[in-house]
Amino acid sequence: MMRDVTSILPLSLESISFRGEGRKLVDAVSLVVPAGGVTVLLGPNGAGKSLMLRLCHGLLTPSEGRVRWAASATGRAKRHAMVFQKPIMLRRSVEANIDHALAAAGVARMERRERAQAALGRFGLSERATQPARLLSGGEQQRLAIARAWSLRPELLFLDEPTSQLDPAATRQIEELLTGLVAEGITVLMSTHDLGQAKRLADRVLFLHRGRLIEDSLAEYFFAEPQTMEASAFLAGDLIW
């Protein structure tokens, strides 16, 4: 079938802006996200990282410009999924959380069960399957949020500061999981303000400042010799917003 062959990537942002409260919160950002690798959105608080991810995922509509996918997904499944900073857990069991997302994507009941089991196994949550999701620890909840997104078989996964509420051990675990997803061929676009994490994970860095994309470079170049004063200051820890 067509939809299984054609990729939705690359994703292109064509000069998108987002206005709120009379200001341009995202200002004429253009970029292309091809398939593969980890792209990290960096920038100080309020730079517009979360807004960018929401605009890409379709939770917000740009005031100007266009978010374009190489192929528009047919049917209910979007083929891109998002994990939020604070995991949003439904008031149901761990497994039912995954089942619900699959049902929303139009997956048939029999297949839902299989895919939920696979996701639980893949992310080490099988023993927790029947527990209320909201009683999991913060790290486990974020793992479940990723498992739930993974079960939807996205080509592109958006993550908004997925580890900002986690301790170092849980953060490491999530980073390993993400590396595994990338090895599987899933493209990742994530925001973080953990520089160490960006260095560990990023293939490419997008540096945002006051809603503008002021640097877009390979990670090694960005960290070695940032091109803008703002990025240098950010890396040096003297922030600027």
């Binding site: 939770l59 499944a77 979007k78 999924a81 939020f84 949003i88 439904l90 994507a105």
Partner: peptide, 24 residues
């Protein structure tokens, strides 16, 4: 207000979100 982002993310917009919200 708590679920909005996730429900919209999985494609449950507007009135399609009602069954989930009533159940939860």
């Amino acid at each position: 207000s708590e679920y909005r982002d996730h429900l919209r993310s999985v494609g449950l917009e507007g009135m399609r979100a009602i069954p989930t919200l009533l159940f939860d």
